[in-house]
Simulated assay, not measured.
Amino acid sequence: MVAIEELLPNGRYDEARGNRQSACTGCYTVTGNHIDYVDDLGFIATGDIRDGVPFHEHRVHYREGDERARQ
């Protein structure tokens, strides 16, 4: 299953999973190279930003159109 997460400039995120748009929504904060996520149901996750790329748990989030996403 493909999950597509959009980090919005207002500190919110919207994640689509498979055919489900907005399957998971919540807020995020960035402190230095660390990112914290809290979904609207209260689930908490963390990650790091390395070279401008968010690493969240076992997933890597590339910008749309980034060649590295195809590898």
Rank of each mutant, 00 (worst) to 15 (best):
A23R: 07
G42A: 00
H56K: 14
P54I: 02
Q71C: 09
R50G: 09
A69D: 07
E67Q: 12
Q21V: 14
R68Y: 05
D40H: 05
I35G: 01
A69F: 07
I35H: 00
I49V: 06
D48R: 09
V2E: 10
E5W: 00
V53Q: 04
D39P: 01
D14S: 12
G47M: 07
L41S: 14
T46H: 13
I35Q: 01
D51S: 15
Y13S: 04
M1D: 08
D39A: 00
T29R: 15
D36W: 00
M1C: 12
G26Q: 10
G11T: 03
G42L: 00
H61Q: 12
A69Q: 03
R20M: 09
D14P: 00
V53Y: 05
T25N: 13
S22T: 08
E6P: 02
R12H: 09
F55Q: 13
R63H: 14
R20C: 02
P9K: 07
T46A: 06
G18H: 02
T46L: 02
R68V: 02
E57Y: 03
A45Q: 05
Q71Y: 13
T29C: 12
G65H: 09
Q71H: 13
Y37W: 15
D39G: 00
P9D: 15
T46V: 08
E64A: 14
D48Q: 11
A3F: 07
A23W: 08
N10F: 11
R17N: 05
R68M: 03
V2M: 07
G11N: 03
Y37Q: 10
D40N: 14
V38K: 10
E64D: 15
Y37C: 05
F55T: 08
R70N: 04
F43N: 11
G47K: 04
D51P: 04
R70L: 05
E67A: 14
V38I: 11
T46W: 06
V30W: 06
L7F: 14
R50M: 10
G11P: 03
Y62F: 15
E64T: 12
A23E: 09
A45M: 01
L41D: 13
D40I: 03
H58D: 14
G47R: 03
G11S: 03
R70D: 02
R70P: 00
L7G: 04
V53M: 05
S22K: 08
D48I: 11
Y13K: 01
I49Q: 00
I35C: 00
T46I: 05
F43A: 13
Q21S: 13
R17C: 06
D48M: 11
V30L: 10
D39Y: 01
L8A: 12
A23N: 08
R59W: 13
D51T: 09
D40W: 04
G42R: 02
A45D: 04
G47A: 06
R12A: 11
E6K: 13
A23T: 06
I44V: 15
N19R: 12
A23S: 11
I49E: 02
R20F: 02
A3E: 11
C24K: 10
T31M: 10
Y28C: 08
L41I: 09
Q21E: 15
H34C: 07
T31G: 10
E15P: 01
V2A: 10
V2W: 06
